[in-house]
Amino acid sequence: MTEHCVAWTDRTETTAPNGVAKRHLDGEGASLARITVPAGTKAPRHSHAHEQFVQVLAGSGTLETEQGTKAFGPGSVFHFPPDVWHAAEFVSETVLVEVNLAPPSHSRFA
């Protein structure tokens, strides 16, 4: 049975070698993640087959896309359609909430 109300602290945290810490909540056709990114971290140019939304809760940095480079901070929201490249540099420790939607062929909503 799926819990309808959970706290991020109740989710298992995984930490990558670069110090990026993630907590996930997975659903059918979508996932939600809370991510803490250390200052100085760089996310190289990449893309994914799924649509993604990201909200910046705390911290700052720069986002690079085909539209150029833009500074971000608390309250910024990113939207990446499938297969659109993006890169980021995190100036200060940054906390993000990320929503990943399954590609249409994998979604129960298709």
Rank of each mutant, 00 (worst) to 15 (best):
A7W: 07
W8P: 04
H4A: 05
S60F: 05
S105I: 06
V54E: 07
E64W: 13
K22G: 00
H46K: 12
S107G: 08
G29Q: 05
L57E: 15
T94N: 10
C5E: 09
T69C: 11
G27Q: 07
P81L: 12
S31E: 03
V84R: 14
E51I: 01
V84G: 02
G68F: 15
G59T: 02
T94S: 10
V20F: 07
M1F: 11
A16N: 08
S92W: 08
G61W: 03
H106Y: 10
R23D: 00
F72H: 02
E89C: 10
S105P: 03
R108L: 09
P103W: 15
V77H: 12
T41N: 13
A33G: 06
G29I: 02
L57P: 01
Q55R: 12
T65Q: 07
L57H: 14
P74Y: 05
R34A: 04
D10A: 08
P81Y: 09
K22A: 06
P103C: 11
E98K: 12
D26V: 07
G40S: 09
A110T: 15
E28W: 08
H48E: 07
V54Q: 04
V97E: 12
T94G: 06
A58Y: 05
W8N: 04
S105D: 15
H48P: 00
P103M: 07
F53Q: 07
S47G: 10
G61Q: 03
T14F: 04
Q67T: 12
H46M: 14
V56G: 01
V37D: 11
T12H: 09
L96I: 02
E13W: 00
R45A: 11
E66Y: 09
L63M: 13
I35S: 05
K42F: 13
A88W: 09
Q67M: 15
G40R: 10
V91G: 11
G68D: 06
R23H: 00
E98I: 01
H4Q: 07
A58D: 13
H48Y: 05
P17L: 07
T65Y: 05
S60R: 08
E64Q: 13
V95H: 03
G59R: 02
H86G: 06
D83L: 10
P104L: 15
T65R: 06
F72Q: 02
V20T: 09
R45S: 15
E89L: 11
S47R: 15
A39H: 03
E66M: 09
